[in-house]
């Protein structure tokens, strides 16, 4: 594809700067986790055994599907299908709440198992990594809700949908981060 055929960056430039800043943050956190693990393999294995992989897997599938819904919403608004866009955004929002529900259930389970930040290095990393990501999900849902409301109010059109694209870019980033976080914390042991 020639350079002039390429499209403009979806969404706002400022949000992309923000996304890369966030990716840098998570990148640092992942690397620190991995190197801390290399010094305490047994401890991390023992900690990971306390986690239920199925819950992590369920949440990964939920978040990917939610990301798909947002991609469909963006595609719909590009065709000027306002109602379809709004419905896909609502679907993404529902899936986001499902993620939050499953994660809260998991946090409750962890608390019952006696996990806390100062127990050991693994629990500290696990709780702060997933907790920090959890806050991003909640923030992403707030953004999606605002954009969905504006969509139903007729605030976006095919030629004027930066808001939808911006919210979408952020939500995909939240998903992308979870994909790495999931294998790091739940799968590789």
């Amino acid at each position: 594809m020639r350079a002039q055929d390429r499209e403009a960056l979806p969404g706002d430039l400022a949000i992309w700067i923000f996304i890369f800043a966030e990716l840098l943050v998570f990148g640092i956190l992942f690397a620190v986790y991995a190197f801390a693990r290399s010094a305490h393999v047994a401890l991390f294995n023992q900690g990971q055994a306390l986690l239920d992989r199925r819950l992590g897997l369920a949440n990964t599938l939920v978040l990917i599907t939610s990301s798909y819904a947002v991609a469909r919403a963006t595609e719909a608004i590009h065709r000027d299908r306002v109602q379809a866009c709004g419905r896909w955004l609502l679907a993404a929002l529902l899936l986001g709440s499902l993620f939050v529900g499953i994660k809260c259930h998991e946090f409750a389970r962890d608390a019952q198992a006696g996990m806390n930040l100062s127990h050991d290095l693994f629990q500290m990393f696990y709780l702060s990594l997933t907790g920090f990501h959890f806050l991003h999900v909640v923030m992403g849902m707030a953004i999606l809700a605002a954009v969905a409301a504006k969509t139903f109010a007729g605030g976006y059109r095919a030629h004027d949908c930066t808001g939808v694209e911006t919210a979408g870019a952020w939500w995909h980033m939240v998903d992308l981060v979870w994909i790495i976080l999931f294998i790091l914390v739940y799968v590789l042991r």
Partner: peptide, 22 residues
């Protein structure tokens, strides 16, 4: 404060330059 603050404090301080770059 408990030991985990060594980690959290270090990592999040390390990203405090980001807003200035922005």
């Amino acid at each position: 404060a408990p030991e985990y603050w060594i980690w959290l404090g270090s990592v999040f301080s390390a990203i405090e330059p980001i807003p200035f770059i922005m």
